[in-house]
Design a protein around this nucleic acid. Structure first.
Length: 456
DNA sequence: GTAGGGTTAG
């Protein structure tokens, strides 16, 4: 009895050290405990696994698993769930799935938590069918799905392009007595907004209001973002003031959403005002906040200040991500420094970032606008993937260089890829062809454009 | 264990 009580005390002590991320102290307590005859149990080690995953790495967490086996304590489903969830949190999704399989191999039965995390990983890996079959296993098996199970399903379906199925599942669950809570509503509203199904999104938003649940700052951010996406800047700003008047606290998500929208529409002064508010509020900056700020400085032509922020970001112990680099590349291009921009593009891959479509698009535009159209074409041809931005950017720059025939060819290859083109882009090529007397080519291009519109 | 933010053309 005494020793069990002591182990509980030991666990409480270690848990509080782990919570404060003081892993060395936790280990000292563990050693002292053993010396005094207080033996750690499965809870002790599970606490450590969770902390090592969060603070250091999944490998560090995994090594605790070995230590516990050496100490004669068998890992349980919670040990594995901590590792699986830890890997998922760090976006090591394939690792999560490997750990799940390892758990099965060593004969530990997964519980609902394990299945929920597994489903979430599969959706995030773009494997909705596999996630679906896990869901089916849960429903047909002995486990009872909980709210998180349904939320993960609805979110995963939305994010994999199955918004309709998500909505159907939601309605189906409701008819069987499922009472959605704020997370479910937010997931669905966000999914519908992103799929541009605004009527349906508004309906769910109304249902949320009459359900008795209060929308939270996440709901507001989702709706605000939706307005900005649909180019309804003023409506979005109204939601911002509504949020303020109702006393919602603003976090980095809400601030960054608004600042980015203002920067994008060239309302730099207002963006600066909001940034001041964000700074006054004392929110800790994360990499996204820094990126938003760096982008604002670039748009103002304050490249030196932007680079200074880059140092600040690293001093704060954060790491630049692919957005940071792309923003810098774009800033360099817009400042007319295409050489350095292109070098930064290669630097990005040297840093281990995979191919970044947006960064390439920025450099193609930069080269074109700097009058180096042949280099732009070369870069275009070297790309392993292209989107409608890539084509549009090159076509406009070809028009700028009066290379209308080539522009027409690129426009046609864009249509052939099934990508959308802008009216302004089509207009630029057609007018250009006519101006240089290639009326026949213009006519042919026009009919191809019409045809592709019919096939869309 | 589940929800929201940041980069490109016209």
């Amino acid at each position: 009895m005494v020793s069990r009580l002591s182990t509980r005390l030991l666990n409480i002590c270690i848990a509080s050290m782990c919570k404060a991320q003081q892993l060395v102290k936790a280990e000292v307590v563990l050693i002292d405990g053993i010396r005094l005859g207080v033996l750690p149990d499965v809870v002790t080690y599970n606490t450590l696994i969770d902390a090592y995953c969060r603070v250091i790495s999944i490998d560090a967490g995994y090594s605790v698993l070995h230590r516990m086996r050496e100490a004669g304590i068998n890992p349980d489903v919670i040990s594995y769930n901590s590792l699986i969830a830890g890997a998922a949190k760090k976006f090591l999704l394939a690792r999560s799935i490997d750990l799940f399989e390892e758990m099965l191999q060593v004969g530990i039965h997964p519980d609902l938590w394990s299945y929920n995390i597994l489903m979430d990983c599969l959706f995030k890996l773009g494997k909705p069918d596999e996630a679906n079959s896990v869901f089916r296993d849960i429903i047909l098996g002995d486990l009872h799905p909980n709210r998180a199970t349904y939320n993960i399903m609805i979110d995963g379906l939305c994010k994999n392009g199955y918004t309709n199925n998500a909505l159907m599942l939601f309605r189906n669950l409701q008819s069987r007595g499922f009472v959605p809570h704020i997370v479910t509503y937010n997931i669905l509203i966000n999914g519908l907004c992103k799929a541009r199904r605004l009527t349906a999104a508004t309906r769910i938003l109304k249902e949320l209001e009459i359900s008795g649940h209060e929308p939270n700052s996440i709901t507001y951010t989702i709706v605000m973002k939706c307005c900005f996406r649909c180019k309804q800047l003023e409506r979005g700003l109204e939601i911002l003031s509504e949020m303020r008047s109702k006393g919602y606290t603003f976090d980095g998500f809400a601030y960054c959403t608004v600042i980015a929208a203002l920067v994008k529409t060239g309302r730099i002064e207002e963006a600066n005002d909001i940034i001041e508010q964000m700074q006054r509020s004392g929110i800790a900056y994360d990499v996204v906040s820094y990126n938003t700020l760096i982008n604002l400085y670039c748009k103002q032509g304050r490249l030196d200040d932007a680079l200074e922020l880059l140092n600040e970001l690293e001093k704060a112990g954060l790491k630049c991500d692919q957005y940071t680099h792309t923003i810098i590349i774009n800033g360099l291009c817009k400042a007319g420094n295409v050489e350095q921009a292109q070098q930064h593009l290669y630097y990005m891959s040297a840093l281990g970032f995979s191919f970044n479509l947006v960064a390439f698009n920025c450099v193609i535009d930069g080269l074109g606008k700097a009058g180096q159209i042949d280099r732009a074409i070369k870069l275009f041809q070297s790309m392993e993937a292209k989107d409608c931005f890539t084509y549009t950017i090159l076509v406009h720059n070809l028009c700028r260089a009066r290379r209308y025939l080539f522009a027409s060819k690129i426009l046609v290859s864009c249509l052939k890829s099934g990508l959308r083109t802008l009216r302004a882009t089509e207009r630029a090529v057609l007018d250009g062809l006519k101006n240089i007397g290639f009326t026949n080519e213009a006519r042919k291009l026009r009919s191809k454009i019409r045809l592709s519109r019919l096939l869309r």
